[in-house]
């Protein structure tokens, strides 16, 4: 009796998800049997394309769980990509460059927190300020022709990387992609299994109650938004130091906004966002494959808008089914 109830419960909670996973697994194995090379390439590209999106989503959900909407992720990424790139040009040290990118993101996070928590500005406008500021600053200080010593290279994890398909996809990646996989787990743990996470969620739901029991609402929001900014900065560093190896104007290309859709699709949980990001990453990987595989004749512009269309569809279909933190977007006033 007891066990059958458990099975029912389990099915209700994870049935759909497991179904999707099983179907995905079957399709992947089938495609692998047909064409191992392309399948491995598409999946590896899926994982890498999803990296900046997961990071952006982690940034977004840390802010939103504590009650601060961050639509400035795009700008945080862009400026971090630029500063990270400059640091790599002038020091030649990629680790230092990543740190510079994360610091930039954190500073932009500080600015957002200052605007939305201290000045109590409208958070949507605050995020827009960050986006426009990033476009202006990177445009002004950008000089064409700067080159770096190279970009972050894949580090195969010994024998693990030789496992066909999954080993090659998961264990043969550059450092920021590994770091992202770890960060997803860490943020999930912190948010749902630590005192800090509980306080963060409390502040996002009911700041005055949290305040009453002695939690400092301002501190929680500041710290979450700043850490989120550093994570968005890592996404920027990924773009300029790991994916491309140089900086281009407006190179974020809307990823910061797509990341918000990823976050909503993942119901503001790190693991859910990771799954959603993989879906978006798959759309991008498929896009590249269609564009250069030359199998179907579609104008490249139509393939190019796939991720954006997907974002709108996801938003239209799923946004009503997630529950916003109650205090989302509202500045907190002490009495």
């Amino acid at each position: 009796m007891e066990s059958s109830l458990n099975v029912n419960n389990w099915l209700r909670r994870y049935g759909f998800l497991s179904g999707v996973l099983v179907i995905a697994f079957v399709i992947i194995v089938w495609r692998y049997a047909v064409d191992p090379q392309v399948t491995t390439a598409v999946l590896a590209s899926t994982l890498r394309q999803s990296t900046p999106l997961v990071l952006g989503a982690l940034c977004g959900l840390l802010g939103e769980r504590s009650g601060v909407v961050n639509i400035g992720i795009e700008g945080q990424m862009l400026l971090a990509a630029f500063i990270g790139f400059l640091a790599s040009v002038y020091t030649g040290n990629l680790a230092l460059a990543i740190a510079a990118g994360m610091l930039t993101g954190a500073l932009m996070g500080l600015l957002l927190a200052f605007m939305s928590v201290t000045l109590k500005m409208d958070q949507i406008i605050g995020g827009t300020v960050i986006n426009i500021l990033a476009i202006g600053l990177t445009g002004y200080f950008y000089t064409a022709g700067l080159t770096t010593q190279g970009k972050l290279q894949p580090i195969p994890l010994g024998p693990l990387a030789d496992i066909p398909l999954f080993g090659r996809v998961f264990f043969n990646n550059p450092p920021i992609t590994y770091a992202t996989l770890i960060l997803v787990m860490v943020v999930h743990y912190v948010l749902f299994f630590t005192r800090w996470g509980l306080r963060t969620r409390a502040v996002g739901e009911h700041p005055s109650a949290a305040d009453t029991v002695g939690i400092n609402v301002f501190t929680i929001r500041y710290v979450n938004v700043i850490i989120g900014g550093a994570i968005a900065g890592l996404a920027g560093a990924y773009l300029s130091l790991e994916a491309v190896g140089s900086f281009e104007r407006l190179m974020t290309n809307g990823r910061g906004f797509v990341a918000l859709a990823v976050m909503l699709f993942g119901k503001r949980t790190p693991l859910g966002s990771w799954g959603a990001a993989l879906l978006f990453g798959f759309a991008s990987a498929l896009q590249t494959q269609l564009q250069f595989g030359g199998e179907i004749e579609i104008p490249h512009q139509f393939i190019g808008m796939l991720p954006y269309l997907l974002t709108i569809l996801v938003l239209a279909g799923f946004v009503g089914r997630t529950r916003d933190p109650k205090a989302l977007g509202q500045p907190y006033e002490t009495e």
């Binding site: 605007m115 000045l119 500005m121 409208d122 406008i125 605050g126 827009t128 300020v129 426009i132 500021l133 476009i135 202006g136 600053l137 445009g139 002004y140």
Partner: peptide
């Protein structure tokens, strides 16, 4: 562009 962003910041803030 930078000046414009700054204007936006100060008007909003």
């Amino acid at each position: 562009d930078v000046i414009q962003a700054l204007i936006l910041f100060f008007v909003a803030a």
